[in-house]
Amino acid sequence: MNDVIELRMLAEVVITLFVIMDPPGTVPIFLGLTGAMTGKQRNRAARQAILVAFGVIVGFALFGQQLLAYMHISLPALQASGGLLLLLVAMELLTGKMEEPEPSGTKGVNVAMVPLGTPLLAGPGAIVATMVFVQRADTVPEWVAIGVGVLVVHLCLWLSMRFANVIHRVLKDSGTILVSRIAGLLLAAIAVQLMADAIRAFVTGG
């Protein structure tokens, strides 16, 4: 089996990315960001978010080091920018602006790409972890393990967001608004932690 796929590497990739991307933890945030959508729109947003996250992860896995080096961008800078973006989204959730309908009808598409697809799902932590795994890969089975591991975690993320539809039917609109406020607090905490880690890395020269 190790001639086809490196099982130890596969386990490392799945566990690491699962903990960082946290599929169960995305459910309240996903509900908060898509509270004004219908079930069909929410399903489409879930698919789009997964595709965006997968594309970002794969793109950085293949070309991340070269891109950051070419643009003279450090990993802490990427982390801090992701934290700032999430903090802005958290403030919108806490103030209720995410529930306001937009006449353009493109709200679901925007939310699926930013902040759901990135930086919430494909955030600095997941990007850096994947880039580290790619740097460690020397053989074809290890590359296969990384690819399968990324697919498995994204499948878990999609299932979590699909399950969110059931939760929305149980909570109704008032419950979803409550969840969106809680999600705003969670997102704000995640954003502050990202920026604090980035500042620490800047100070220590990481």
Rank of each mutant, 00 (worst) to 15 (best):
M1T: 13
M1N: 11
M1W: 12
I5H: 08
I5P: 05
M9Q: 08
V13W: 04
V14G: 05
I15S: 13
T16V: 07
L17D: 06
V27W: 03
V27P: 08
I29T: 14
L31Y: 08
G35E: 12
A36N: 14
M37D: 09
T38L: 02
V56S: 00
G59I: 01
Q65E: 14
Q65H: 11
Q66N: 11
L67H: 08
M71R: 10
S74N: 03
P76D: 02
P76I: 01
P76H: 03
A77F: 09
A77M: 11
Q79L: 03
Q79S: 10
S81Y: 00
S81P: 02
L87Y: 01
M91A: 15
E92T: 09
G96L: 04
P103G: 06
P103A: 14
P103E: 14
S104N: 15
T106L: 13
V109D: 10
P115G: 06
L116R: 08
T118R: 01
L121K: 09
P124Y: 05
A126C: 03
A126P: 07
V128S: 12
A129W: 06
F133G: 00
V134N: 11
D138Y: 07
E142G: 06
W143T: 08
V150I: 14
L151W: 09
V152S: 04
V153K: 11
L157K: 02
W158Q: 13
W158E: 05
L159P: 13
L159Q: 10
S160G: 12
N165V: 09
V166G: 08
I167K: 03
H168K: 15
H168A: 15
V170H: 11
D173F: 11
R181T: 07
I182N: 02
A183W: 04
A183I: 04
L185P: 10
A188R: 04
A189W: 10
I190Q: 04
V192P: 01
L194K: 12
L194P: 11
M195C: 13
A196V: 15
A198N: 10
V203E: 07
T204F: 06
G205W: 00
G205E: 00
G206S: 14
